[in-house]
Simulated assay, not measured.
Amino acid sequence: MLTQSDLLTKKGVYIQQMFGSIAKVYDLLNTILSFNFDKSWRKFAVKVSNVAPDARVLDVCTGTGDLAIAYSRVLNSSGRVIGSDFCHEMLRLADFKLKKRMLSDKIRVIEADTLHLPFQNNYFQISAVAFGIRNVADLRAGIAEMVRITAPGGCVVILEFSQPVNSLFKAVYYFYFKKMLPLIGKLISRSKYHAYSYLPSSVLNFPDRYGLRAQMESCGLEDVKIYAKTLGIVTVHVGRKPRN
């Protein structure tokens, strides 16, 4: 059985197994554990992307495809979204969701590792990720791949859990985040991989908002803007790839 320490190594096979074990309840738990804020966070990330209606968008670590769907809503008939993930169980659910919502003509999902994206340089106007880059084995390499496939002048968008800065709210939130969330997640998911104990631990071991901006800048992005949402529970980072 995988331990929390195993998961925190971010070894690809461990992360695949963990997400595969919770795939069927992933959407439900996202809604419950975020108090339904997750939808508005994705919508905001799309809004600050300044995405053109006919853009090509890549959503890495797409999971069940919710960010890809959010982007598709602002695109016209020429725009396209590709969602990539290396967890087969998640992609099966994403594909089912797209067919059910009749979005298969606008969104395509593929099985791919964020560290080795099967796309040519400068292909997408937007590359984005929601709550996934934290799980990539090599953070900087993952961001670098997103930058590589983004066209000059395009944007890399990262929506991720963060650490609140208000001390009073932080104390209350951390009690929920460290104690209640893992318990609720375990009861509903029945996962043997400690997925919802891993979540807060991975967030606390992840760079803060300024550290993440520094990582994005080190990969060549410029004018990286940080948007904090819901008292700093999550942040959206948007960086632009230079035109030359």
Rank of each mutant, 00 (worst) to 15 (best):
residue 57 V to K: 04
residue 19 F to I: 05
residue 1 M to S: 15
residue 109 V to W: 08
residue 190 R to G: 05
residue 81 V to I: 12
residue 152 P to G: 08
residue 65 G to W: 06
residue 46 V to N: 11
residue 59 D to C: 02
residue 186 K to E: 15
residue 65 G to M: 07
residue 29 L to A: 08
residue 178 K to S: 08
residue 147 V to K: 01
residue 236 V to T: 14
residue 70 A to Q: 13
residue 178 K to R: 15
residue 152 P to I: 05
residue 235 T to S: 13
residue 212 L to A: 03
residue 74 V to T: 15
residue 85 D to P: 01
residue 160 E to S: 06
residue 148 R to V: 03
residue 149 I to S: 01
residue 62 T to G: 00
residue 3 T to S: 15
residue 194 H to G: 03
residue 9 T to R: 12
residue 57 V to C: 09
residue 68 A to I: 04
residue 115 L to Y: 03
residue 216 M to P: 02
residue 113 D to I: 04
residue 6 D to V: 10
residue 243 R to F: 00
residue 45 A to S: 15
residue 66 D to W: 02
residue 150 T to P: 02
residue 116 H to Y: 12
residue 97 K to N: 14
residue 125 Q to R: 11
residue 126 I to S: 08
residue 34 S to L: 05
residue 203 V to Q: 11
residue 81 V to F: 09
residue 77 S to E: 13
residue 6 D to A: 11
residue 134 R to Q: 14
residue 24 K to Q: 14
residue 125 Q to M: 07
residue 131 F to R: 10
residue 141 A to M: 13
residue 219 C to K: 08
residue 241 K to C: 00
residue 29 L to V: 06
residue 221 L to N: 05
residue 165 V to W: 01
residue 54 D to I: 02
residue 206 F to Q: 10
residue 178 K to G: 03
residue 224 V to G: 03
residue 43 K to C: 02
residue 86 F to R: 09
residue 153 G to M: 02
residue 48 V to I: 15
residue 84 S to D: 05
residue 66 D to M: 01
residue 89 E to G: 03
residue 132 G to F: 10
residue 147 V to G: 02
residue 42 R to D: 06
residue 165 V to I: 11
residue 81 V to K: 06
residue 116 H to T: 09
residue 21 S to A: 14
residue 60 V to A: 08
residue 12 G to H: 02
residue 180 M to Q: 12
residue 58 L to H: 04
residue 211 G to R: 07
residue 92 R to C: 08
residue 150 T to I: 04
residue 9 T to K: 14
residue 213 R to E: 02
residue 16 Q to L: 01
residue 24 K to H: 14
residue 244 N to F: 05
residue 140 R to S: 11
residue 55 A to G: 10
residue 79 G to N: 06
residue 176 Y to R: 08
residue 160 E to L: 01
residue 65 G to H: 06
residue 65 G to Y: 03
residue 8 L to R: 04
residue 239 G to C: 07
residue 10 K to F: 09
residue 173 Y to A: 05
residue 74 V to C: 12
residue 146 M to P: 00
residue 90 M to L: 10
residue 52 A to F: 09
residue 232 G to C: 12
residue 121 N to Y: 10
residue 30 N to P: 00
residue 28 L to W: 12
residue 235 T to H: 12
residue 153 G to E: 01
residue 234 V to L: 07
residue 218 S to C: 07
residue 15 I to K: 00
residue 181 L to Y: 06
residue 242 P to D: 08
residue 37 F to I: 10
residue 36 N to R: 15
residue 8 L to T: 09
residue 5 S to W: 01
residue 173 Y to N: 10
residue 48 V to T: 09
residue 30 N to W: 06
residue 47 K to F: 05
residue 155 C to G: 02
residue 20 G to W: 07
residue 235 T to R: 02
residue 97 K to L: 05
residue 15 I to C: 02
residue 203 V to H: 13
residue 145 E to M: 01
residue 48 V to C: 02
residue 80 R to A: 09
residue 159 L to P: 04
residue 70 A to E: 15
residue 223 D to C: 00
residue 229 K to Y: 05
residue 92 R to Y: 12
residue 213 R to C: 00
residue 6 D to L: 12
residue 146 M to L: 09
residue 62 T to I: 03
residue 94 A to T: 11
residue 147 V to Y: 06
residue 31 T to P: 00
residue 33 L to M: 15
residue 192 K to A: 11
residue 136 V to L: 02
residue 243 R to W: 00
residue 238 V to C: 07
residue 7 L to N: 11
residue 42 R to T: 03
